[in-house]
Design a protein around this nucleic acid. Structure first.
Lengths: 292, 292
DNA sequence: GCACAAGAGTGCGTTATGTGAACAATACCG
DNA sequence: CGGTATTGTTCACATAACGCACTCTTGTGC
């Protein structure tokens, strides 16, 4: 792997096409966190049309509304002509509809992303357990997986109270300041730790957020050793969360399950005493149900 | 609109590129149900690279597993070279990872489809009401929208019992034999009815499924007039479902909400007497909360 | 009602992409 | 082990897609 462009010494076109017009700001970031990995991709192995099309889909996600052709063009850094071709393609394939001059996505786009939720199958199995735990504890319970430096929620049961901790499936939060995130980061193989710790941005979210790399490593080691994580208001003031890793019968990491608890309801000590055991029992039960 | 290819009388390439190698079987179907609409698209307004890339994403959804380059190529009807370029693009953009020779999607693909669930915003608002109804009735409640002739579930609260009616968000069922589907079809504007009734495939799912077009129209008229739909084992034996449309304050159709009831638990009459009023009360409450 | 502006659609030269075939590297099998 | 599939990678060429600049349409202000 990692080939060089040797043959064509004449071509001015550099390693990767310099296309990056207006899509700064929300860059997808690089695939692998172990090291820089910046270029490393042969331009002939890249289909920019596809990347642009996906960027259009994401644009709808970001702005969360119907858009005109020109808006899409501006939002994605495409020319109007280009945006038009992409939009018409999406319409033709049924992913979008044109309502007058406004384009909007159809539910068919769900077909693109759902393998992540359901293909794993694990979450279908885990679902009833999660629901049960939620109604037993009378708190919101959710399941998440790691995507780079974010946790993405893939399942969850909300416990409806005045303070509803509103987490939708597909929601994304920084891993460093969430209980699920820390559990998942801590479960990474040892050889990943250096690159991980070096690149993870410890963004401050509240006054409690751990932002010191040295302290963060220590926290992660503790989470790894004790097998669970409690995060007290580091993501959002008033919200405490406790999480444990979920593994299949073979011990492979599947994700993490957490209970979100408003701080007004109980403190860390109470959570560890009352919530943690039930949470651990739940993942044990789920694990036993997970084949392979 | 509907231009012809006049300029190039020499070109053998017909209206739409004849690309349709192996993607039969799971065709996206045509965008508009009102009439045939088959060709009708100028080839210059179509980005086949994008369509192929999306087809690759769907392939992962369909097969629900990791795949090698060759498998992807075969599954999507691409050449290996083409599949490789697409996969490498997906990896580079973070939508996929290459694990040895196996490719798999990352949770980032959720970013493509989630606008449909969350961008509407309505479902975030509806969620607590749905949860509440579910625990009050001790039955599974879900919300769905219409996509062509399918209903797609966008939210739901499962009531965990022995018989768990397992519906994941993103799940898709034929509209003609589901309560939500009938409510949504019946709510379509009158001018859509002819095309709709003409094209909808009344596939038989159980021995109870209504498959006669004339009877189906009558059923739909009744649903429209009474404002709710009860479907008894037409999708699956042993499953009854009752649904009502959800509208925002302005009366615009947002989706439908249904309660799924195993037939062993109660019959249609009981459902209409006990479940329907609570369901109607719930959508009234949600509607009042929905702006615009 | 006319001019003007902003957005939508079109033609064309240039460049990137798809195709198919050759090549390389493994896996498979007797 | 050596032959043979099978899969992954590279290449050359024909073609489809891109951006640009232009035209057409719609809607807005005066």
């Amino acid at each position: 792997m990692a080939k060089e462009v040797i043959e064509k010494e004449e071509t001015p076109g550099d390693v990767l096409p310099p296309r990056n017009p207006a899509r700064t700001g929300l860059m997808t970031a690089s695939p692998d966190w172990s090291d820089d990995e910046n270029g490393g991709l042969n331009p002939r192995d890249y289909v920019s049309s596809l990347a642009r099309g996906l960027e259009v889909l994401r644009a709808f996600n970001r702005t969360r509304r119907k858009m005109t052709l020109s808006e899409v063009a501006a939002e994605t850094g495409n020319t109007r002509a280009g945006a038009r071709r992409i939009l018409l393609t999406l319409v033709h394939e049924g992913y979008a509809v044109a309502d007058g001059k406004l384009f909007d996505l159809t539910p068919q786009v769900l077909e693109l992303g759902y393998s992540v939720l359901s293909s794993k199958g694990a979450w279908d199995i885990a679902r009833p357990f999660i629901d049960h735990l939620s109604s037993e504890l009378r708190e919101s319970v959710s399941a998440a997986v790691l995507d780079r430096f974010d946790v993405v929620y893939v399942s969850g049961a909300q416990y409806h109270r005045v303070i509803s901790v509103g987490i939708t499936v597909g929601a994304r939060f920084p891993a460093h300041c969430t209980a699920t995130g820390r559990v998942l980061l801590a479960a990474q193989p040892p050889e990943m730790w250096p690159g991980m710790l070096q690149h993870i941005p410890l963004t401050r979210m509240t006054e409690h957020t751990v932002t010191d790399p040295v302290e963060f490593r220590r926290v992660l080691e503790q989470v790894r050793d004790q097998g669970w994580s409690l995060v007290d208001q580091e993501l959002e003031t008033g919200l405490m969360s406790i999480a444990v890793p979920l593994r299949n019968s073979a011990g492979g990491l599947v994700g993490a399950i957490n209970v979100g608890i408003p701080t007004v309801r109980m403190g860390p000590a109470a959570a560890i005493e009352y919530v943690l055991p039930k949470l651990q029992e739940t993942v044990r039960n789920i694990s036993d149900s997970l084949k392979r």
